[in-house]
């Protein structure tokens, strides 16, 4: 495993920790989209169907378990924890899941590497992950007073994808037969969706002001 890939995974892990920290310490999920979190839980379930059938490494299995466990616990906190759930901006978080899930499923049935259940679910998870951030970005745009942890969480999530792209470029040049068009294009789309956010993130960082996306 190369350093870019490891950095990508660690950034992803830290983003989840930041979010859980926010939920745990201040007992608040204000500004966090439950829709996006539910989509991530679905992404991990569909992608890690091979967790018990294809052993890759201990690292790989543990990370999969962590991402599955944390994504479901975040959803649980936001839906059922008696204090946390009160801070959920339900009226603002109105993005419809099926607008994203259905097209991704259809696309996965049409464009995949192999027409098998596991492969289609894996492809579906890639397409869905690419767009799963959209409800969160919409909510961010609507929220007037976004706290710093929420902004850092979204930034880390975007940084993870950007690092994965660098990892793919590295692997393409160093590994023979390393060619994954579906993964690359989905990952690229996902990172592009962050473009606007990154732009305003750096602007707010440069000018030392709170981040606010223009309506």
């Amino acid at each position: 495993m190369n350093i870019l890939r490891l950095a990508g995974d660690m950034t992803h892990l830290i983003s989840v920790i930041v979010l859980l920290l926010k939920i745990h310490s201040i007992k608040s999920c204000a500004g966090i989209s439950l829709k996006t979190q539910e989509l991530y839980a679905l992404v991990f379930v569909s992608r890690y169907l091979n967790i018990f059938t294809d052993f890759i490494s201990l690292y790989n299995t543990i990370m999969k378990l962590i991402f599955l466990g944390t994504s479901f616990s975040i959803v649980w906190y936001m839906r059922y924890h008696k204090i946390v759930r009160r801070s959920y901006d339900k009226d603002q978080d109105t993005f419809r899941h099926y607008f994203l899930v259905l097209p991704c499923l259809i696309l996965a049935l049409l464009i995949n590497e192999r027409f098998t259940f596991k492969e289609i679910m894996w492809t579906f998870s890639l397409y869905l992950e690419a767009v799963a951030i959209l409800p969160q970005l919409v909510l961010l745009q609507r929220t007037k007073n976004t706290d710093n942890l929420t902004v850092q969480y979204i930034f880390l999530l975007g940084a993870y994808r950007a690092l994965y792209i660098l990892n793919w470029i590295y692997r393409y040049f160093t590994e023979p037969d390393y060619l994954h068009w579906i993964t690359w294009i989905s990952g690229l789309v996902q990172t592009i969706l962050y473009g606007d956010f990154f732009y305003y993130y750096f602007l707010s960082w440069k000018n030392n002001v709170k981040l606010q996306l223009p309506a």
Binding site: D9, D54, D177
Partner: peptide, 10 residues
């Protein structure tokens, strides 16, 4: 595609 490597990315 006979030489399919297992998917090692997360």
């Amino acid at each position: 595609n006979p030489t399919r490597k297992p998917k090692d990315e997360l």
